[in-house]
Amino acid sequence: MIALLIRDLRLAVRAGGGFGLGLAFFLIVVTLVPFGVGPQGDILARIAPGVLWLGALLACLLSLDRIFALDFEDGSLDLLATAPIPMEGVVTMKALAHWVTTGLPLVVAAPVFGVLLHLDMQAYRWLVISLLIGTPALSVLGTFGAALTVGLKRGGLLLSLLVLPLYIPTLIFGAELIRRGAQGMSVQTPLMMLVGITAAVIALVPFASAAAIRVNLR
């Protein structure tokens, strides 16, 4: 299974922009927001947590349809399905590879983008923590959506439609965590909820994703 992770990461690096593309998209979103809402620092500071989370969400969404599509087209998925690794392991590794190439760079780069949006000084810590905890859930849920739509020719739009509603709880608690951190309020509830959701998603959703892949290969 580690071999699969290594292969996917290697492919992401070789394909060029595997890491950078989502990040560039994130930057564009953050750049466009002030054009839309005006350059006033206080407004930007207020909406920064939400904008940063939305940007992360969309950047993550961008690369979802590639999680299984390439392996499906070149026959690798068939071969993986007959290989001695459980499909649950395959989808988990796929989600992990997606997180390392998309989620992790966002976590690292988010503080820089926070500066652009005048994010409160005390919120940076919580920005990184909330993205670090929340983005794995985005990748795993995205993998589920990708698994549902893998056989479909024009699954990209449908994939967004299926996956984005599943992101709502993570978005709510993730952004709220930063907001409360910025105001110096207690962050315990959103933090616990975010951890709980991510843990539950990682533990349970791969089974659903694997089932969906098996159905789609049939």
């Binding site: 549902l148 709510i172 159905v215």
Partner: peptide, 23 residues
């Protein structure tokens, strides 16, 4: 099969969203 799985996962998240939205 696929919509069944989606319904299952979706139900959990619909419920979760309800609480999240309350909060």
């Amino acid at each position: 099969d696929l919509t069944g799985v989606l319904c299952l996962v979706g139900s959990v998240f619909a419920l979760l969203s309800r609480y999240a939205v309350n909060f």
